[in-house]
């Protein structure tokens, strides 16, 4: 049961990775690309980690997966903010329709 639920979560996570990558390729400027990538990938990694945790039979492993997700959330958010600030500082204006 938990194996199937885990597989569903992982596939769902992969779909979010795919949509984040699509956004990276298709969106017009660095800010919108960051927006697509950071949010979609964070959620995707969370889903993949949750799915893998359901497959893991070891509490330590599940804790490590949770830790990986939390660390990536924190560093990913900081990196996105840094890239956006660097882009603004280099005079890149946000895209407008």
């Amino acid at each position: 049961m938990s194996t199937i639920a885990g597989a569903i979560l992982i596939v769902l996570g992969l779909l979010f990775f795919l949509s984040g990558t699509l956004g990276l390729l298709r969106f017009p400027d660095v800010f919108t690309r960051l927006h697509a990538l950071s949010k979609a990938d964070t959620l995707a990694l969370g889903l993949v980690c949750a799915g893998l945790a359901l497959h893991a039979d070891d509490g330590t492993l599940q804790l490590k997966l949770l830790l990986i997700w939390l660390l990536v959330i924190v560093s990913g958010a900081t990196c996105s903010s840094l890239i956006a600030r660097a882009a603004l500082a280099h005079g890149i204006r946000p895209w407008q329709r």
């Binding site: 660390l71 924190v74 560093s75 958010a77 900081t78 903010s81 840094l82 600030r85 660097a86 500082a89």
Partner: peptide, 17 residues
């Protein structure tokens, strides 16, 4: 250096780890 308040905050969290 860029004024980026989030980086020192991240470092304060990550450095001990």
């Amino acid at each position: 250096r860029l004024p980026a308040p989030s980086l020192p905050a991240l470092v304060r969290l990550l450095f001990p780890l």
